[in-house]
Amino acid sequence: MITLVLGGDVNVQGRATPSAAFAPLEPLLKSADLRFVNLEGALDATTAEALTSAGIDVVSCANDLVAMANLPVLDHAGIAHCGAGANLDAAHAPAVLERSGEKVAFLAYTSLRPFGGQPDFPGLAQAFATTAYQPDPRVAEIPGRPPLVRTTPVPEHLDRLVADVKRAKAAHDHVVVSMHWGLPGAELAEYQVAYGRAAIDAGADLVAGHGPHTIQAVEVYRGRPILYSLGNLVFDWPAMRGRHVDGLLAGCMFGDEPRLELIPVRRTADNECEPLAGDDAAKVLRYVADVSALRSTTVSVRDGIASVHLGA
């Protein structure tokens, strides 16, 4: 049995004491066997102390080309990484960690094109999508109705993701797929569902999403969870101060009786990320339960913790 804690987007900068960035969350993080977050933004030897002090074991670097400069810093700090590399094969290689005699493979992809949508990023694992606009069925009756936005995975990216997951599952006990995708708000883009379900069909045990900077639904598909967006965790990007302050920590247990629990977190006025409790926690988790119900997924809330019903 392995316990894994996953967080959303992390950006560490401008802190007098980077090693204390995760201090309010450390009791939750250090109770797990493995800890994962999405690293968004530049890292250096000083800010890397935020991750090492919190015991972060593995990060996704599938965000933008800043990741290339982060890789040697992560290697020096002893933090595993996935989703970026010197070439495309390296970017698609899983980060593999072993605990209690079981191996967990982490794969990471980005659907969000950095730098104005330039097409070629040989060092990032890509899961891009195309966008089309379909006229509303009632547009002839009610002129001006907004079109329907249809998004579809790029076929070659979807095929490679599926192949990566199948290969990782054949060689390791568990596979976690990280996806940088989506738009702010509750509504999911069609391509998110397509990629998330394809990863599960290929053998992933869990899909963890981030990128919208807001919390999105959980969907249990074929008995395994897709966390569409965990929101922000520790996030120091100045443009995000006071915005999109809520996030989730997801605690997952792999084994004969898998479990998934969610704990809400919030960045304070001082931009410190802390666990929520009481009415604040209940309000966030009721929102998670409501949007997850739209994905035919049951989330139970009790005492500041949400339990996701994974089914048989």
Rank of each mutant, 00 (worst) to 15 (best):
C61I: 11
D303Q: 10
T17Q: 15
Q126I: 03
A202F: 03
D136C: 05
D75N: 10
L39M: 14
R267K: 07
K166W: 00
G209C: 10
P122Q: 05
G83Y: 09
A186T: 11
P225F: 00
K283E: 15
A171V: 02
D173C: 06
L183H: 13
E156F: 03
Q126A: 12
S31D: 15
H81C: 07
R222K: 15
F128G: 07
A293P: 08
S60H: 11
F115A: 13
S19P: 01
V176S: 10
A312C: 00
K30P: 04
A108E: 06
R35A: 15
V149H: 02
P225A: 01
R266D: 01
H174N: 05
P27R: 10
G247Y: 03
A168N: 04
W237I: 02
A93S: 15
F106C: 09
A306Y: 03
A69I: 01
A250H: 01
L230H: 13
H210R: 06
A90W: 00
E26A: 12
A91M: 04
I305L: 02
G55M: 04
D270E: 15
A90I: 00
M179L: 15
G117Y: 04
A54T: 14
P114M: 07
F36Q: 05
V176W: 08
A93K: 13
S60E: 10
A306D: 03
G83P: 09
F121A: 06
P275N: 09
A80H: 13
I56K: 11
I56P: 12
L112Q: 15
F235E: 00
P184Q: 10
L51F: 13
P258E: 04
A217T: 11
D236C: 13
E49D: 11
A42I: 02
Y287H: 14
P119Q: 06
L227I: 10
V308Q: 05
G185L: 12
T268W: 01
G78M: 03
T46P: 00
S53C: 06
L88V: 07
H76D: 12
R138Q: 11
L97Q: 13
Q192M: 14
V308R: 07
A129H: 12
S229W: 04
W181R: 00
P212M: 09
N70R: 08
A23N: 09
E26C: 14
T131N: 01
S292P: 11
A239K: 10
V218K: 11
L249M: 01
A239D: 12
A67Q: 10
A125H: 09
A45S: 14
T298Q: 14
E141R: 06
V37P: 10
F128W: 12
D270W: 02
S19T: 09
F22D: 03
G196T: 01
P114T: 07
N232I: 05
A45L: 10
V149L: 11
V234C: 15
H309L: 04
A95F: 06
G196H: 04
D201T: 00
P258V: 02
A163M: 04
N271E: 15
A86H: 08
D205Q: 08
P94A: 03
S53H: 12
D136M: 00
L294Q: 13
V96E: 10
D280L: 02
L188Q: 13
T110N: 10
R138A: 13
Q13S: 14
A125M: 08
P94R: 03
A21N: 02
G182R: 08
R286Q: 14
